[in-house]
Structures are given as structure tokens and as C-alpha cells.
Amino acid sequence: MHTEAIDPPGVQWLRVSPKYVTVRLVEWAIGNVVMLAFLSLPLIFVLLGWWRWPPLWLAITVPAVMLVLALWRLVLIPRQVRAIGYAERDDDLLIRRGIFFQRTMVVPYGRMQYVDVAVGPVERSLGLCTLKLHTASAGTNAQLPGLPSAEGARLREQLSARGEARLAGL
């Protein structure tokens, strides 16, 4: 993937596993199917003649709009996953994400308070994990989802070691 405008020049991004698309698809399916089913209830009730309000057009429009939005998000998922990237520099870790709303974050190793590795059920079945970095700031919402387990473990060890070497107070 080409480097976006807000990325620092000369950074070689590492990508997360393409298998992470599956995780996102499962999440998408669970979220949207429930949502759509719920929003379609009025339509069903109106069609069955149990409800007089809302009018039929409204009962159709709301779930239809939701469906279109959901499908659009579905189409975006592979690109979003490809947009997630990270780069280990000498003193800090760069993390980027997003296509429309892009974010590039730098987390200095010395600032890391602890590193989490979380694995959900879908991720586990695919051999993936999510790495979370915590600093003293709650604003540091640094997550790296969809890392292969081995890479996640390596990164965790690496980050902890580097963090220890450069540990600074607050």
C-alpha cells in the first residue's frame, strides 16, 4: 500500500494478517444481523397488519438505509484491514489505521506502562491476537489487531524489553 499523506516519510509499514478480515466479517455479521432484525420488526408488524403506524414507506426505508450502510461498511472492511500498519523504529512504535479517518500514532517505548495481548474466540481459531499498548495517558488508544500469534508474542517481548531499556518516569 502506498504511504498516505500524513505518514512520516520513509517509513516501511508492516501489515497485519489478511486473515483479520475474517474476524472483522464475523464481527460485522453479528452486529448488523441483530441490528437489521431489530429494525425490521416494525416492517413485519405493519405487513402483518398488527400495527397501523409507522406507514409502510417508513417501515421499509429505515431498514433499507441501514442495510445499505452495512453493506458499504462490509465492502470497506478489506481496505480498512489493509490500512492498518505498524513500524518499529529505534525509539518508538508507529501505528496507523483508517482510510477516510486516518490516524497515525507514535508511542515511545519508554512511555509504555504495560503491553497486553488479547485473544478472542474467532481470533484464536485463526491463530491471531490483538496487541494493546498502555501509557500513562488514557488517550493512547493504541491497538494492533490481527497479528499472527507468533508475531504478537515477539512484539510483546520486544516492546517490553525496549521499554525497560528506555524506561522514563512520567
Binding site: 499523506a5 500524513i6 477516510f100 479517518f101 486516518q102 490516524r103 497515525t104 500514532m105 507514535v106 508511542v107 515511545p108 512511555r111 501509557t135 500513562a136 495517558s137 488517550g139 493512547t140 493504541a142
Partner: peptide
């Protein structure tokens, strides 16, 4: 602590 660049459409 850390920094981030944000850019929307």
C-alpha cells in the same frame, strides 16, 4: 506520552 495525527476526509 504519545502522539497521533488525525485526518478526516
Amino acid at each position: 506520552q504519545s502522539m497521533a495525527l488525525h485526518q478526516g476526509p
